[in-house]
């Protein structure tokens, strides 16, 4: 599955790569935080694709980044 994701990304344009990563990450993030999922996904997509791939492969990594993103968003909205 990992190589499929990597090879799929390698054949896509930078714009398509971000969209694909967003489509893959969004349902995972939505399961963790339904309310802020759209903003969290948008925020995480500003990171390098290699980091986003790592998050797709590592639920622990994704969760910690989601927690960070939630903290930043709440600080912005306060």
């Amino acid at each position: 599955e990992k190589s499929l994701i990597a090879s799929t990304l390698a054949s896509a344009s930078p714009e398509e790569q971000k969209i694909m990563l967003g489509e893959w990450l969004f349902p995972l993030i939505q399961a963790m935080n339904p309310t802020l999922a759209s903003k969290i996904t948008g925020m995480l997509l500003e990171m390098d694709n290699s980091e986003l791939l790592h998050m797709l492969e590592s639920p622990e990594s994704l969760r910690s980044k989601v927690d960070e993103a939630v903290a930043v968003l709440q600080a912005c909205q306060a």
């Binding site: 930078p14 714009e15 971000k18 969209i19 967003g22 489509e23 969004f26 349902p27 759209s38 903003k39 996904t41 948008g42 925020m43 997509l45 500003e46 968003l73 912005c76 909205q77």
Partner: peptide, 22 residues
């Protein structure tokens, strides 16, 4: 205060505004 436009929200199936910054 004023509304915050960051971060650009991602919605599946919808073009992502954040792409303008790449």
């Amino acid at each position: 205060g004023s509304s915050i436009n960051w971060p650009p929200e991602f919605h599946p199936g919808v073009p992502w505004k954040g792409l303008q910054n790449i």
